[in-house]
């Protein structure tokens, strides 16, 4: 019996010392923080705001758990839960990042498509203006030309918003330009209908 106790004692002491040497799961914590950072860099705060907020909360909870354990007497420290939280935060971070990237791509694709539609609307209006006879019905035509020039210039605003990755703004601008382009085309067609088959004026000066 004494022999058994003598043999077991070092093992028990070793186990106690081992427990006393418990350290925070640095590798998992780093991985979790990196995953959250990457999610943030991918635009998660904008495109998956709800998930990102929860992800940050998980990271905070994990850090608190580590701090709580750090505050305990060395022999009673247990970082098992912190490790579990870190692993979970890492997995969530990767998922949120993937979701954000997907949603951002969708928003970008939507903005690019809206930009294209707006460009086509402006192009069609420009072509309509170019085909208008340079006759004496210039009151409407001159005003419309100003409108078309302004529309052409405003296309740059869409590109600027896309460059800034502000896709909702790009979409709203593109929609406004498209709608205005169509309205200008309709106005121009009305003006042209009035001009009808009128001859171009040979009058000069003025």
């Amino acid at each position: 019996m004494n022999i058994t106790i003598n043999r077991l004692a070092p093992l028990m002491l070793g186990a106690i010392l081992l427990a006393g040497c418990a350290k925070p799961p640095a590798e998992q914590i780093d991985a979790a923080e990196k995953a959250v950072k990457e999610a943030q860099m991918s635009g998660a705060a904008t495109y998956t705001a709800q998930e990102y907020a929860k992800l940050e909360a998980s990271l905070t909870a994990m850090k608190k758990e580590v701090t709580d354990q750090d505050g305990k007497f060395a022999l009673f420290r247990d970082y098992g839960k912190a490790e579990q939280l870190a692993t979970s935060a890492k997995a969530d971070g990767e998922r949120v990042k993937a979701d954000a990237v997907k949603k951002k791509e969708e928003a970008k694709a939507g903005a690019l498509q809206a930009q294209q539609v707006a460009k086509e609307a402006v192009k069609s209006t420009v072509e309509l203006v170019a085909s208008a006879p340079v006759g004496k019905d210039r009151a409407a035509l001159e005003a419309i030309k100003n409108d078309v020039e302004a529309l052409k210039a405003s296309l740059n605003q869409i590109q600027l918003a896309i460059d800034k990755e502000d896709y909702p703004a790009a979409q709203a601008q593109a929609k406004a330009i498209h709608d205005k382009g169509q309205a200008v085309s309709a106005e121009l067609q009305n003006a042209l209908a009035k001009v009808g088959k009128g001859k171009p004026s040979a009058h000069k000066k003025k």
């Binding site: 100003n146 409108d147 302004a150 405003s154 709203a172 601008q173 929609k175 406004a176």
Partner: peptide
């Protein structure tokens, strides 16, 4: 008949008004 006096400004303003409506419709 003062539209010509304003150049491209009426269109720029119209676009802003349309964007304001568009954002409102999107609950932004």
């Amino acid at each position: 008949d003062g539209r010509i006096v304003l150049g491209g400004k009426p269109v720029q303003t119209d676009l802003l008004v349309k964007q304001a409506r568009s954002f409102y419709d999107q609950h932004d």
